[in-house]
Design a protein around this nucleic acid. Structure first.
Length: 238
DNA sequence: ATTTGATCATTT
DNA sequence: AAATGATCAAAT
């Protein structure tokens, strides 16, 4: 009775689960995200017909891309938040066995030479003005298949955090503007930091330093320190 | 070549 | 153990 299959239509509601279209409101997005809570990555991958890699060694972005697919993120790898119409950025948050974020969170690359002059027009602000955080079990003891998805948090920085992020951004970009690449490292910034962001350390861009000399440096990216994401988790799951 | 998704691996 | 610096894959 294989013929009968053509009479079976995928209902919109079922389709909705498998291949979500971009969510129209943040409420719908959050509802979808909450629907995933408790599910394992293996279960979600199976639903989406995605093969689970043996580990993340050669698939570092796999978890994030799986969740993007599950929730209907539409920005691809354009320089926009994952849900452009909502201004919401999606971030998975790896949680270790102790219940704290295992890693910092990548935000975006730095344009070198710097093209942005104001925090509120910056890529950093566009991406961290509103973030959907999805905690993911990430204990190395657990196989990728068995790691569970937590309850998503739709987060916006409060005014204090916003001010700190703005200050961090202004200090970091000021160093870049002044060409102080010698002192530029991940040590600066309260919540925001600058770190290398490239395929490898041989990938270089040419910039002008504070001596007026052309030098080659590894491209940089903005990251959120894990002390910030730890605070966010504490607030929401208290 | 770049940007996205990040985690890996070494140093502190 | 935590933080910094290095790296991997896919998409375009």
């Amino acid at each position: 009775m294989l013929e009968f299959a053509k009479f079976i239509c995928i209902m919109p509601s079922a389709m909705h689960q498998l291949l979500p279209t971009p969510p129209e409101t943040t409420h719908i997005l959050l509802e979808r995200a909450h629907h995933l809570a408790g599910m394992t990555l293996g279960e979600l991958a199976k639903k989406l017909n995605e093969k689970t890699p043996p580990n993340l060694l050669r698939a570092k972005g796999w978890v994030g891309q799986l969740l993007e697919k599950a929730l209907g993120a539409s920005a691809g790898n354009l320089d926009l938040p994952d849900f452009p119409q909502l201004g919401v950025e999606l971030k998975t948050l790896p949680i270790n066995a102790q219940g704290v974020p295992q890693e910092s969170t990548y935000l975006c690359r730095v344009s070198l030479p710097l093209q942005e002059s104001e925090f509120y027009l910056s890529r950093v602000w566009r991406k961290c003005a509103q973030i959907l955080w999805i905690p993911i079990q990430a204990s190395s003891q657990l196989s990728l298949l068995d790691r569970k998805i937590g309850t998503a948090i739709l987060w916006m920085p409060n005014s204090h955090l916003e001010a700190t992020l703005k200050k961090d951004w202004e200090e970091l970009t000021q160093m870049i503007r002044l060409g102080q690449f010698d002192k530029l490292s991940a040590h600066h910034g309260t919540y925001l930091q600058l770190r290398p962001k490239a395929a490898n350390a041989k990938q270089l861009v040419t910039v002008t330093n504070d001596q007026g000399k052309s030098i080659a440096i590894v491209p940089k990216g903005f990251y959120l320190r894990s002390c910030l994401t730890q605070m966010i988790l504490r607030e929401y799951y208290a």
